[in-house]
């Protein structure tokens, strides 16, 4: 599998002070694959995700996305800011709290990456941004400021902003955890659409039913280690490990996606 893997993480370690958050993690994501990271809070799944685009710099191990590989640990030099920026431009990330730029309109938010990072001409960037906004169903909100949007709309703009960089992989960090329940569906629908288009994705989520539906593989983490990993339905329907079973017992595992109540 590792030969075709788009994302390859090896023996990744990270500590914050004396708190060891990642204890030698390995992860493979195939090209076009969708991996869901699940686990209790504090399990290290968000830190792992943030290590993939180096928003968090690991203490040891290695991360490869596409052809770019970084190794960490004693004797290795940290990548310089230019290298880091170039690398991150190829990985899109969506945050739990959206992190839209409040001083820019929706359209400007989506154009910001193409203009500042990809040095695209303004007209081209605007065309691209409008296409991405239409894709997440928010074409008519282009000239509004983020403060006027609902949580679900904000998160869809954030997805459009990440997609405007035309990334190789998308990382979702609890993208629906800050949303009101009735707004979760519209965001999950956009993610599902991306999956069906063959986008390589890593999704940190508490939406177990969604993970079962959309992800090919599920990784269950606890206390900084991978406890169980496998095909999504197998891990969620018939977990092998007691810890996985205990965690999953808190959720309704099956059932359809939450209803898509707003493509507006």
């Amino acid at each position: 599998m590792s030969e075709t893997a788009k994302i390859e993480v090896r023996s990744l370690r990270k500590s914050f002070g004396s708190n060891e958050v990642l204890k030698g993690i390995g992860l493979d994501v195939a090209k076009g694959g969708v991996v869901a990271l699940i686990g209790p809070s504090g399990s290290g799944k968000s830190t792992l995700l943030r290590c993939i685009n180096l928003l968090v710099v690991p203490d040891g191990g290695s991360v490869r996305v596409g052809d770019t590989r970084f190794a960490f640990g004693e004797g290795t030099k940290l990548p310089d800011v230019k290298t880091l920026a170039r690398f991150r431009a190829t990985t899109g990330m969506v945050f739990q709290h959206f992190n839209l730029f409040p001083h820019m309109t929706t359209l400007q938010n989506v154009m910001e990456g193409p203009i500042t990072v990809r040095r695209m001409a303004k007209a081209d960037a605007e065309k691209l941004a409008r296409t991405q906004l239409a894709k997440v169903g928010l074409a008519e909100k282009a000239d509004q400021y983020p403060a006027t949007l609902s949580g679900g709309q904000k998160q869809r703009v954030a997805i459009a902003r990440a997609l405007a960089m035309e990334p190789d992989v998308m990382l979702f960090d609890e993208a629906t955890s800050a949303l009101d329940p009735e707004l979760v569906g519209e965001v999950l629908n956009v993610i599902q659409q991306l999956a069906s288009e063959g986008m390589t994705m890593v999704i940190v989520t508490h939406e177990i039913a969604f993970a079962r539906e959309v992800a090919d593989r599920v990784v269950f983490m606890r206390d900084g280690v991978v406890v169980e990993e496998g095909p999504a339905r197998q891990v969620i329907d018939t977990p092998r490990e007691a810890a996985t079973r205990a965690f999953l017992s808190h959720f309704h595992r099956t059932g359809a996606l939450p209803p898509a109540n707003a493509a507006s």
Partner: peptide
């Protein structure tokens, strides 16, 4: 200014300087 703002800039591929001038300082 919330840390998430500079994280979002960094995640887009901006350098720290671009994040400061385009995202953080205007706010």
């Amino acid at each position: 200014i919330d840390r998430g703002q500079s994280e979002a800039g960094a995640a887009l591929g901006m350098t720290p300087r671009q994040t400061m001038t385009r995202i953080v300082l205007p706010q």
